[in-house]
Amino acid sequence: MNINQNPIILNVDNLHASIQDTEILKGINLTVRSGEIHAIMGLNGSGKSTFAKVLAGHPDYHVTQGSIQYEQQDLLELSAEERAQAGVFLAFQYPIEIPGVANSQFLRLAYNTVQAKRGKEELDPLEFDDFVREKMKLLEMKPDFLDRSVNEGFSGGEKKRNEILQMALLEPKLGILDETDSGLDIDALKIVAKGVNHLHNTGNAIILITHYQRLLDHIVPDFVHVMEAGRIIKTGGKELALELETHGYDWIHNDQKRAAGAST
């Protein structure tokens, strides 16, 4: 585990969130500093995607308690688009298909909107085309993909690469990757990992939600958190993921029992 005194990008304090009156998140605490990579692991249904969507501002989820500070702002005060403009980016576990909207059109619109909000230069279609093709090379994407509708008919791997491409264009301060590795073969996984590592620097931070150690072989986390029933029940360094891989999630419970037993 690193000792990092970089500025705090995200501070989540006792976060509770519900959907349709069902509480899913039950008191999450998490501090992320710039330059850090955090992995969040946990069984299906433990609330990882819910946490990611609450960070991104999905309107169906209601925060009932706690707070989220993002770069000295109250994140909960910002709408989803304001969060994106301020540098929060969620790579979706299930990217949405939007028939009828060309990928190139969508990417340019998103890019220019965010650039304008950040007081930076917008690109015309030709300039943008050069720019996006450069980024696509990094992710080894076929050029024809720009002409297709957003995610429509994309394979699982293509959709995930498209998410990372969007991340590359929008240059977030806080990238949240929700199971970006699921459904990728090992080659695609390496390409995606290379892309993410390329985007990561000391000025930003990444939260990786994953089930599998194999992603963490390629993107090495500073912290690993284990989520269960809407809480982070254990935090450790990168070796925690290896222990989980070897012993399974039950091991944590036994481990906690042992710890509890030892302290009495």
Partner: peptide, 30 residues
């Protein structure tokens, strides 16, 4: 209009109005 599609577009920085317009347009574009 599909709320998940609107959220997806908003999460990329587009405001509600533009997101809705784009999806409406896309429906007709076919």
């Amino acid at each position: 209009l599909d709320n998940e599609e609107i959220f997806y577009l908003k999460s990329r920085g587009l405001n509600e109005l533009i997101a809705r317009n784009l999806l409406t347009y896309a429906f007709g574009a076919e």
